[in-house]
Nucleic acid binder design. Structure first.
Length: 233
DNA sequence: TAGGCCATCTGGTCCT
DNA sequence: AGGACCAGATGGCCTA
């Protein structure tokens, strides 16, 4: 369990901290692999073009759509697809709204059915939804990346913080800063750190050089740092 | 090889 | 009606 040794610079001037490691995070360059080689921007361009051009450039997807067409039309498809769509339990309606209750089961009146559009049109909309979802997740990941940059921490095994680590660390960092403010005001610290704070890396206090490396300002940061736009704790 | 983490796809639900 | 949000499913990659 980590112990905050010192947290300064609450006014934004200098963050002084004691680091246990000399490794400096390089979050900006830590781009995870595993994604499609196709860039989102490029895919957006595809969507702005004619649909046929998109499929010309994505023959694999076109093949998938050809195979899926029968499924979307008649409810049949590959065994795997059917298994996933039929067997996957759906979560209960969030908030249990009346609209959800009145929508009935899967075949009830609440189920949205796109009548009058072709299978190809449905597939195209599915692809567009996929693209939007991908963009949404990318923006979420950018937010995680920004969050990692502003949290003082020590790189573990030369790898980036996972999402859960980032959130947990951020939570404890906020707690630590809040306690620091309380202490400076002569008040009782509001939060206590104990063994329940699982998966908690210490909020390492970095020295000034390390902090600067940790917080390489992004373009957005530079925009935000304009006079009057930065608020302090 | 198991387990963790992640990106992506997918369809239901909510919101505008 | 359509986009945003959400969570389950799946497969890939990496590490112990």
């Amino acid at each position: 369990m980590a112990k905050i040794t010192e947290v300064c610079a609450l006014s934004g001037s200098t963050t002084t901290a004691v680091s246990q490691d000399q490794d400096m995070p390089q979050w900006a360059s830590a781009e995870g692999g595993g994604s499609e080689a196709e860039s989102p921007d490029q895919m957006m361009l595809y969507y702005e073009d004619e649909t046929s051009q998109y499929f010309d450039n994505k023959p694999d997807i076109a093949d998938k759509i050809e195979q899926a067409g029968d499924f979307y039309d008649s409810g049949s498809g590959s065994d795997e697809q059917v298994a996933r769509r039929v067997c996957r339990p759906r979560r209960a309606a969030a908030g249990s709204s009346s609209s959800a209750a009145s929508s009935g089961g899967p075949a009830g009146p609440g189920r949205r059915r796109r009548c009058g559009i072709s299978a190809r049109e449905r597939n195209l909309r599915r692809l567009e939804s996929n693209e939007r979802e991908r963009m949404r997740m990318h923006s979420l990941n950018r937010a995680f990346e920004d969050l990692r940059r502003v949290i003082p921490h020590v790189k573990k095994d030369n790898r980036s913080l996972s999402k859960i680590e980032t959130l947990t660390l951020a939570k404890n960092y906020v707690k630590a800063l809040t306690n620091a403010i309380c202490t400076m005001r002569g008040e009782v610290p509001r939060y206590q750190f104990n063994s329940d704070d699982e998966n908690v890396e210490p909020v390492f206090v970095l020295n000034r050089d390390q902090e600067q490396n940790n917080n390489v300002p992004s373009d957005q940061d530079r925009e935000d740092s304009s006079p009057g736009s930065r608020s302090c704790l």
